[in-house]
Computed example of a mutant assay.
Amino acid sequence: MANSPQAKKRARQNETRFQVNKARRSRIRTFLRKVEESISSGNKDEAATALREAQPELMRGVTKGILHKNTVARKMSRLAARVKAIS
């Protein structure tokens, strides 16, 4: 348990950041799920639109420190390839 005033404040700040980051992560996952669902449905236009909407959210996750830059690059690359492969 935190004893010093500084440690108590850090514990409060950590809890706040945890809640904010949790909400951001959930939002990113929602956008990714929309892309996945449109890919599985086979609708190329819908999938491309969903991917375009998801990309800024993913990059925002990088700038906010939730996801690593290379992780997001890999995810976007694989999703783009899957959208492109829809015939």
Rank of each mutant, 00 (worst) to 15 (best):
L58Q: 00
S41F: 07
M59L: 15
K34P: 06
V72M: 02
K22G: 09
K64V: 01
R10I: 07
N21K: 14
S38I: 03
S26D: 11
K69N: 08
S41V: 08
R12I: 05
K69A: 05
K8F: 06
R52P: 08
M59R: 06
I66L: 14
V20D: 10
S77F: 10
D45Q: 12
R60M: 09
T63D: 10
G61D: 01
A7D: 08
P5I: 06
R24E: 12
T63Q: 14
K8L: 09
D45W: 06
Q6R: 13
E53Y: 11
A54S: 15
L58H: 00
R82Y: 08
G42V: 04
R25W: 04
I39L: 07
K64Q: 03
A2L: 05
K64I: 02
F31S: 03
K64N: 02
N14G: 15
A81N: 07
E36L: 00
A80M: 08
Q13G: 04
L32K: 02
K84I: 07
S4A: 07
R78F: 09
L79F: 04
E37V: 06
L32Y: 01
R78A: 12
V20C: 09
R52I: 09
T16Q: 14
L67P: 00
N3L: 11
V72S: 02
E46P: 01
R52E: 14
K44S: 04
T63G: 09
G61E: 00
A80K: 03
R33H: 13
R74Y: 11
N21W: 05
L67Y: 04
R12K: 14
A73E: 14
A85Y: 09
E15Y: 11
E37W: 04
T30N: 07
K75Y: 08
T16H: 13
R82W: 08
V20E: 13
I39Y: 01
A50K: 00
A7P: 03
K69T: 06
V62G: 03
P56W: 07
M1T: 11
P5M: 05
S87I: 11
A48T: 05
Q19D: 13
R33Q: 12
Q6Y: 10
A2S: 10
L79I: 04
T49P: 02
R82S: 12
A11I: 11
T16Y: 13
S41T: 12
K69I: 05
Q6N: 11
K22F: 11
V62F: 04
R74E: 12
H68N: 12
Q13N: 06
Q6A: 15
G42P: 01
K69V: 05
A7V: 05
V62I: 12
M1H: 10
P5A: 07
A54W: 01
K64P: 00
R17L: 03
L58T: 00
N21Y: 06
R27Q: 13
L51K: 00
R82T: 07
R60Q: 14
M1Q: 10
R12Y: 05
T71L: 03
R82L: 12
N43D: 14
K44V: 03
R25H: 09
G61K: 01
T71Q: 05
M1Y: 10
M59I: 12
S38C: 08
P5T: 05
M76L: 15
Q13C: 03
A80V: 08
Q19F: 14
K69L: 06
E15Q: 15
A48E: 12
L51H: 02
S40F: 08
V72G: 01
K84H: 13
K22H: 15
N14W: 09
T16W: 11
S87D: 13
N3T: 11
F18K: 15
Q13K: 07
L79E: 02
A54C: 14
